[in-house]
Nucleic acid binder design. Structure first.
Length: 156
DNA sequence: GCCAACGTTGGC
DNA sequence: GCCAACGTTGGC
């Protein structure tokens, strides 16, 4: 199967691309939205490309690349009663929340701000740019991926 | 199964 | 900090 592509949002105050670079890999814990979970559980495969996006940031931007390092497995924080992600209804025999792990690839030479992405040719239908789109895990098309990687390399 | 109330996300 | 958009909850 061909490599697929994704966009993951993170608030840099919570977890930034710089931190991912330091850590090398990161478990994507704490996702508590069913649609986002389904993407991680069903569709994200080893080696898939990941755009790392800083939300609630100055500026909001795609800041780096990563890839799927470990496919779907249960998010342990759902069972940790002291975690802010604790879910009392989730059972160990049938965990509600799944996660993947990602591996750092690179920090973009320059961040691609939301503003710039909105103006870029070829990204008009990108999910991230759709009004009201709040999903923290989103699919990215191969064309969008290509466009974004090229934008990051070439300046503009 | 509808839908109002409430909570969360995230750009600005 | 505001608030629009969306998801979830729970009464009926």
């Amino acid at each position: 199967m061909a490599r697929a592509y994704w966009l993951l949002k993170s608030e840099p105050e919570n977890y930034s691309i710089e931190q991912l670079k330091k850590d090398g890999t990161a478990g994507w814990t704490g996702v508590r939205n069913y649609q986002a979970r389904n993407f991680m559980r069903d569709s994200m495969k080893l080696g898939d490309g990941v755009l790392f996006y800083h939300s609630n940031a100055e500026p909001t931007a795609i800041v780096g690349l990563a890839e799927v390092f470990k496919e779907s497995h249960p998010d342990p924080t759902q069972f940790e009663s002291r975690s802010e992600y604790y879910d009392a209804k989730s059972k160990r025999e049938s965990p509600t929340w799944m996660m993947v792990e990602i591996k750092f690839v690179e920090i973009l030479k320059r961040p691609l701000t939301l503003q710039e992405l909105k103006q870029a040719k070829g990204l008009e239908t990108m999910q991230l740019l759709r009004k009201g789109q709040r999903l923290s895990v989103q699919p990215v098309t191969p064309d969008e991926w290509k466009t974004i990687v090229k934008l990051a390399k070439t300046g503009r």
